[in-house]
Amino acid sequence: MSMNSVYLKVPAKPEYMLVIRLTTSAVASRAGFDVDEIEDIKMAVSEAGTFVMNQDKGVEWLELTFKVDKEEGMWIDIFASESVHQEALFSNREQSELSFYIMESIMDQVEKAIDNGFLRGIKMYKKFGG
């Protein structure tokens, strides 16, 4: 089993979504996903990025980890530099709920990383040929 990792840290600003999206598509294409899957992964990652970013104005950085296993698929973690207050989760609830459902429908696994009641980020996984 060979695992390759890519780390990315960008300012938590909407204009840096482009950097995240481009990196995501480059890594996903290295991993061997086809174009439709790459579009899906990109969509899920930008949803997650916006999701984490919008929870709290205090988030300064987004930290992304991509892990690629040539046989299994790809894991992506999207974390905020600071913990996001769990109560903030309920701000603009309808929208964030929907965006979470979207992530869940296009990835094979999505979970919120919660640390002491604070949202830290989102972990997702996409398997090959899924």
């Binding site: 309808e94 709920e97 929907l98 459902y101 979207i102 429908s105 296009i106």
Partner: peptide, 13 residues
């Protein structure tokens, strides 16, 4: 289930 959680995968599908 909430309706939106049911509708989202259906629509995406």
């Amino acid at each position: 289930y909430k309706f939106s959680s049911f509708a989202t995968p259906t629509i995406i599908g």
